[in-house]
């Protein structure tokens, strides 16, 4: 250990110039990644100026004329925009409310399983849906909700003597979205919690047992506090992403029948921008979304830090 730090210090003591010249290769190592980020991330960030311009394809991003806040004013006067923001938030909040606790409970349960064989089987099986593509997931939904041969409707018939149009009635859209998400992601999300549970010192449990703590009490008073930092970190990330609900699944599940509830910001940006070619307006909507996301992330980070001292940055 001390050996390592000594070596690190000895490197550090060398003159800056020698370190720079000796390690010029390291800069070459980093170069491709830098080029990537410049071209694929930072260039689009500068391109965001078209939100304040009237983009003309023949004039390009830099040459198009400035129009100030015109597109943003249009957003605020758009009657459907409020509904779209509400849809985005509602979908995210449902997902957070249902999707966030499930992996925690699941991880606590897996951790309590004494038989390691059973535990490993449950883990292997529950991770599997994570590897199914979104396209396949949505088609599985269609298959299982089919009114003729869908298993969910077979169940519905058994209990309610009627079929339920899960995918063609818009009030079911949010429920189907959230539940299919839990089916796909809950198992995979347990990994992080399980790794936090692994790092708990067994002595804590032993001394608690000597003091007469029951198993339930130990889960609640030892396991829960130990995963709390991980929990709040993931919570921050999820709240930070409230306005950036994934495009793929919503877009795939969208139908004319459920469009009122299923139009979210990302799908709206796609349609206005790439289908109706209103580049500038659509970029303005996207910029609004990115800024709100950034603010949300900073806000939740501040709140969780003041509450329990865990924060992302």
């Amino acid at each position: 250990m001390s050996q390592t730090t000594m070596t690190a210090q000895s490197i550090r003591r060398q003159p800056v110039l020698r370190r720079l010249t000796r390690n010029y290769e390291l800069y070459l190592f980093a170069l491709p990644a830098v080029v990537y980020f410049v071209l694929f991330c930072y260039a689009p960030m500068f391109g965001v100026q078209i939100a304040f311009k009237n983009f003309k394809p023949n004039l390009g991003i830099w040459g198009s004329p400035w129009v100030g806040l015109k597109h943003f004013q249009r957003i605020t006067t758009l009657p459907s925009f409020l509904q779209i923001v509400r849809n985005t938030l509602a979908l995210s909040l449902y997902q957070l409310a249902v999707g966030f606790p499930v992996p925690v409970v699941l991880a606590l349960c897996i951790n309590e399983m004494r038989s390691s064989k059973i535990r490993r089987t449950v883990q292997t099986v529950s991770y599997a849906p994570y590897f199914i593509s979104t396209v396949v997931l949505v088609s599985l939904l269609e298959i299982f909700c089919n009114e003729h041969y869908g298993v969910l409707n077979a169940l519905a018939r058994a209990f309610r003597q009627e079929t339920i149009p899960f995918l063609t009635r818009q009030q079911y859209f949010r429920g189907m979205y959230v539940l299919s998400g839990v089916w796909q992601g809950a198992g995979w999300s347990t990994i992080v919690y399980l790794s936090a549970l692994t790092s708990i010192d067994p002595e804590l449990h032993e001394s608690a047992m000597i003091d007469g703590a029951s198993r339930l009490q130990r889960v609640w008073h030892i396991n829960m506090p130990c995963i709390l930092p991980t929990l709040s970190l993931l919570f921050i990330l999820q709240v930070g992403g409230l306005m950036s609900i994934g495009f793929e699944k919503v877009f795939l599940m969208q139908k004319d029948i459920n469009i009122e509830l299923s139009e979210v910001i990302s799908t709206y940006v796609y349609k206005q921008g790439l289908q109706k070619l209103q580049y500038s307006f659509s970029a303005a909507v996207g910029l609004f979304n990115s800024v709100v996301n950034c603010l949300l992330l900073v806000l939740t980070n501040t709140v969780t830090r003041s509450l329990n001292g865990n924060s992302l940055f």
Binding site: F40, C41, P44, M45, F46, A283, G286
Partner: peptide, 8 residues
């Protein structure tokens, strides 16, 4: 930057 600027 968002979808549209990236696309452009």
């Amino acid at each position: 930057g968002g979808l549209i600027p990236t696309y452009l």
